[in-house]
Computed example of a mutant assay.
Amino acid sequence: MAILPKALILLQLAVVCIQLSGVLAQTVPDRCWCLNTLKKRVSKEDVEEFSIFPQRARCNNIEIILTLKPANTTTTTEKIQRCLSPETKQGINLHNCWQRKNTNSTRSTVKMSECF
């Protein structure tokens, strides 16, 4: 009879671990998203919005991801994303803007029009 309570405790522990692993998998990316970054300036007219991701457990880099406005074609509405080096002058300016707009750490994306 003593085996049943131990089995229930192990089952509950397994359920909690599975639930926590699902939460962590959603919030912590496996690696850096930006493997290559742009070192040159991107025209602000071409950028719709940008996201900044601070250093994380599995990525030691600050990542700036630009979402470019769609090209003037009627065949595709796919948005193109490019990584910008945070060490460029534009990257520093965008990071400063993001910090001003993201005072309560709830936003990851900022519209380019909010900065300039």
Rank of each mutant, 00 (worst) to 15 (best):
T106R: 11
T88A: 10
E87D: 15
I80F: 02
L94Q: 01
N96M: 13
E114P: 00
T74I: 15
K101Y: 06
I52H: 00
C32T: 02
K6N: 10
P5E: 04
F116K: 05
P86N: 11
I92R: 11
C32G: 02
Q81S: 13
I3S: 08
C59K: 03
R82Y: 11
E63S: 05
A57N: 10
N102L: 03
P86E: 06
E114V: 04
K79C: 00
I62T: 15
L84F: 02
V16M: 12
Q19R: 06
A25L: 07
S21G: 05
H95C: 08
E87L: 10
R82F: 08
A57R: 15
E78Y: 12
L4T: 06
L38S: 12
V42D: 02
I64P: 01
N61Q: 11
E63M: 06
N61D: 15
N36E: 13
P70T: 08
K39N: 14
F116H: 07
L10M: 09
K40T: 14
E49S: 14
N60F: 08
P86R: 05
V28A: 08
L20W: 13
R82H: 13
Q99L: 14
L94F: 07
R31G: 06
V16Q: 06
N96H: 14
N60L: 10
L94P: 01
K89E: 15
M112Q: 09
K111R: 07
G91V: 00
C59S: 05
H95L: 14
F116S: 05
R107S: 07
N102C: 03
I18K: 05
L13M: 10
I18T: 14
I9M: 10
T27V: 15
K39A: 13
S51V: 05
T27Q: 08
K40D: 13
L4V: 13
R56I: 02
G22S: 07
S113I: 12
T37R: 09
T74P: 04
N104R: 11
P5I: 05
T109N: 03
L38N: 11
K6D: 07
V15S: 01
F53T: 15
S51Y: 04
I62S: 12
I80W: 02
T27W: 07
I62Y: 04
L13A: 11
N61F: 05
V16C: 12
Q81Y: 10
S108M: 09
N61M: 11
K79F: 03
K44F: 11
P29Q: 03
K89W: 06
E48C: 02
S105K: 14
T75H: 10
N102A: 03
E49I: 00
K89S: 14
H95T: 15
Q55T: 15
Q90Y: 02
S43L: 09
K89R: 09
C115E: 00
C115S: 00
A7R: 07
P5H: 06
T73C: 09
Q12F: 12
T73R: 12
T88N: 07
W33F: 11
T76C: 02
G91W: 01
S21R: 09
S85M: 03
L8D: 00
A7D: 05
V47R: 01
